[in-house]
Amino acid sequence: MIARLGVALGLLLAAGSAQAQDASTLKKDMIGQWELSTTERSKTCVVTLKPDPAPQGMKLELEPSCATALPFTKDIAAWTVKGLDIVRLENAAGDAVIDFTEVESGIFEGLRANEGVYILQNLVAARSLAKSMDQMIGDWSMVRGNGRPICGLTLTNNEASTPDNFEAYLKPRCEQPVAAFAPTMWRLERGALLLIAPSGETWRFEADDNAQWRKSPDSADPLIMLRQ
């Protein structure tokens, strides 16, 4: 009986040690510059997370434009890690302004009630994404797998009426089903291109090894976007 209790106690101590190690590792990994933004970077803010202790967590710096781009950042005074995997940006009292959890390597998501989702991403990676978005702007051709064109499309950097989306325009004489879909907005999301219709219907395209964008899920007669 005593031996079993000793084993159980050992397992609990080991689990506690692993949890502390996970939180400690996350704290170390978060030190540096991050971009805080809306989901598709229409509004951005650079946050520098520091290892120095603050009254409620650790110190950070927000670039001056943060308060204008994202007004809620005016309340942020420190950062910390809660539990195993929650990165918290908090106010001077230690209350959460926004909590982030990692959804992909180096990409964290946080939700603010009545506002929506925000992204915290390594600054270098975020700026690489911005370059990718710039490369998407312009004229595209939609073709079938055999290369037959069925529609022309222009992606712009004009902000659409829906937050974090940009305006898209179909060219005349598009064939079905693109003409019926009639997208008016686009955005990049986690490496995929999303085309969005006024109804809210969304088509997802993913880049392939040939620098093309193929509609997902793939099919026997794929729809492919090619740069014109």
Score class of each variant (00 low, 15 high):
V47D: 04
V47C: 06
L49W: 08
K50W: 07
K50T: 12
P51K: 10
P55V: 06
P55Y: 07
Q56L: 01
L60P: 11
E61N: 15
E61S: 15
P64K: 11
P64H: 08
S65W: 10
S65H: 12
A67W: 02
A69R: 05
L70N: 00
L70C: 04
F72L: 13
T73S: 06
K74H: 11
I76F: 01
A77L: 07
A78V: 08
A78P: 01
W79A: 03
T80S: 15
L84Y: 02
L84I: 10
D85I: 02
D85K: 11
V87C: 03
L89T: 04
E90D: 15
E90R: 09
N91E: 09
A92W: 00
A93S: 15
D95G: 08
V97D: 00
D99C: 05
T101N: 06
E102C: 02
E102L: 05
E102N: 03
E104M: 12
G106Q: 05
E109T: 05
G110C: 08
G110N: 01
A113Q: 14
E115I: 11
E115F: 10
G116T: 08
L120Y: 06
L120C: 08
Q121M: 13
N122M: 02
V124W: 04
A125I: 08
A125H: 01
A125G: 05
A126C: 07
A126K: 11
S128I: 09
L129Y: 12
K131Y: 10
S132K: 15
S132R: 15
Q135N: 13
I137L: 04
W140E: 00
W140S: 10
S141W: 13
S141K: 14
M142C: 00
R144W: 12
R144S: 03
P149S: 10
P149Y: 07
P149G: 08
C151I: 01
C151G: 08
G152T: 14
G152H: 11
L153P: 00
L153D: 02
L153T: 08
N157W: 06
N158E: 10
N158H: 02
E159S: 03
A160D: 11
A160M: 03
S161M: 05
S161T: 11
P163W: 06
D164K: 02
D164C: 02
N165T: 15
